[in-house]
Design a protein around this nucleic acid. Sequence first.
DNA 1: TTTGTCAATAGGACGA
DNA 2: TCGTCCTATTGACAAA
Length: 199
Amino acid sequence: MAILPENYSNLDLTISVPGFSSSPLSDEGSGGGREQLKLDMNRLPSSEDDEELSHGGSAPPRKKLRLTREQSRLLEDSFRQNHTLNPKQKEALAKHLMLRPRQIEVWFQNRRARSKLKQTEMECEYLKRWFGSLTEQNHRLHREVEELRAMKVGSPTVTSASSLTMCPRCERVTTSAGPSMAVMAVPAKKTFTPQECEH
DNA sequence: TTTGTCAATAGGACGA
DNA sequence: TCGTCCTATTGACAAA
C-alpha cells in the first residue's frame, strides 16, 4: 500500500487486479528534458473554463497538458495498486493531484491501453519465437522421415514412413508395429507426465 | 522536418 | 438513462 501521502491513507483502494509488474512506460526515463509543465496547465480549471470548453465559443487551440513527475509517480503508484478506480478514489486522487477527475479517468484509460499494448507485444514476441522453434522442429522431423524412408529397405518393422503415428496424448511418434522411436518436443509451458499416456 | 509520446476526444458497448 | 470502459484517432509538444 502506501501509494499516497498519509493524509490520503484513507483512500479505499480495494479493487483487486491481476498481478502486474511496475510500468515500463513511466515517464522517468525519457530524458529530463520535458521536465515540469507550466502551473497554469495543471491547475484545477475554474467553472468558467469548463463553460468555455463546453460552449465551444471560439474554441481556443488545445494546449497539451504535461503531468509533473510527482503527478506521474503518484498515478503510476495508484495504477500499480488498481487498474481501475471507483468514483471516490478518482475524486480523491484528482483533489490530491490538483487535476480534474476526468483527467484522472483519462490517464487510467490511456495507461490501461498502454499496458495492454505492451502485453500484446510481449505475446507476439513469444508466439514468434514459438513459431520459429516449431518450424525448426518441423524441418528436423522432415529430415528424420527422409532418413527413415531411406532406411526402409531391409527393415522388417518399418515398412513406410506413412506407418508412423503420433499419440495425441503423449505426442510420442511410434510405428504401427513397434515401440516409440522418438519424442516430439512440446512447448515449454507443457510438462509431460507419463501418467497422461496410456502407453 | 520527422518521429515518438501522451493527454484528450469521439463514439460505441455494456451493466446497473 | 447514466456511468464507465475500450478502441481508434487527433493534436500538442519535445527530441532526433
